[in-house]
């Protein structure tokens, strides 16, 4: 009799929990940003770009941390006169890249969209991709698991710190990293015929992004930043194959000897990301490439871009 009572109690408790999960899932339900992985970062980035003057950006850089470590928009402007913005976010998935671009295209008409290719291997699932299979199962069935971090938006809407606030970023999305931790692994781009396949949804989102760029008369350019920790020849082959098939430009900086990266001084974390010294080399290299390949104009003397000039002055203090 006692056991039965306990069984009834347990079932009752679990049923109650199930109802609560359903109720919470109704609360944590999204009407927009449904296919976004990291809503908070995506919204923050959209708001940042929204704070820029309309149609003022010529280049957008997308991708994960490789992106915001490698491309320095203020340096690109001060040395080449091209306006750009880093739309990269930490561990960015292509589903997030797509959403950011979709929103940014509403106010900007960039001539080139650059995607740093490391994010191709992160997959593009908007939820349920941890190594915890039960958590993935629950995430795919109860939206409270997928969108639980939206509590910050709820709280923010009460405190006035919520989303929708335009926040200007003087470094245009770039993050300065001055620390040095050398890479000691030796040569890493060993030529081979192997290909490392992308996760399947990467192809879906790449096609969507390409279409979005084409619809907005924007060129898509893929760039692999120098990163011995993340990049291999097999990955290079796969990106090159998709780029060739889709007639998209591809620049693998891991194969550019004249880039001049010194792995003793130009990486902040043993070859995972370049530091600011490395970012300067990358930015100068692609600055020249963008000017030459896409004929982007030099806007340094344009009155409309005086504020960019001001920001660039700050760039020279970044190393301090």
């Amino acid at each position: 009799m006692k056991i039965n009572k306990n069984v009834v109690k347990s079932v009752g408790f679990l049923l109650g929990l199930f109802v609560l999960l359903l109720a919470m899932s109704a609360v944590f339900h999204r009407k927009n940003f449904v296919n976004v992985y990291d809503r908070e970062s995506v919204e923050r980035k959209i708001n940042e770009v929204d704070a820029e003057k309309d149609n003022s950006l010529e280049v957008l850089f997308c991708g994960d941390s490789e992106c915001y470590s490698s491309f320095c928009p203020t340096l690109l402007f001060s040395e080449f006169g091209h306006t750009s913005y880093v739309c990269g976010t930490s561990a960015q998935r292509l589903c997030d890249t797509y959403t950011i671009l979709e929103e940014v295209f509403k106010t900007q008409s960039p001539k080139v969209v650059v995607i740093e290719t490391n994010c191709f291997y992160r997959g593009a699932k908007s939820s349920g991709d941890s190594n915890d299979s039960v958590l993935n199962f629950l995430t795919n069935r109860f939206s409270v698991f997928a969108y639980h971090s939206d509590w910050k938006n709820f709280v923010g809407s009460f405190t006035g710190k919520g989303t929708g606030k335009k926040e200007k970023n003087d470094l245009k999305g770039f993050i300065v990293r001055n620390s040095v931790n050398p890479y000691k692994g030796g040569r890493y781009m060993v030529e081979c015929e192997d290909e490392e396949e992308f996760p399947t949804d990467t192809y879906t989102y790449l096609d969507k992004i390409l279409k979005l760029c084409n619809d907005n008369n924007t060129k898509l350019l893929l760039i692999s930043s120098p990163s011995p920790k993340n990049w291999t020849y097999a990955r290079h082959n796969s990106v090159k194959k998709w780029a060739n098939q889709s007639q998209v430009g591809y620049l693998d900086l891991n194969l550019q000897n004249n880039l001049g990266i010194d792995w003793d001084t130009d990486t902040k974390d043993g070859g995972d990301h370049v530091n600011y010294a490395g970012a300067k080399k990358v930015t100068r290299f692609i600055g020249a490439y963008l000017s030459e390949t896409y004929g982007l104009p030099d806007l340094r003397e344009e009155q409309d871009y005086a504020d960019w000039k001001e920001n660039c002055k700050a760039t020279y203090d970044l190393e301090k």
């Binding site: 919470m24 908070e40 939820s127 958590l135 698991f145 639980h148 971090s149």
Partner: peptide
């Protein structure tokens, strides 16, 4: 579930 530091 709601406040845990997991996911995106």
């Amino acid at each position: 579930i709601i406040l845990g530091a997991y996911g995106a």
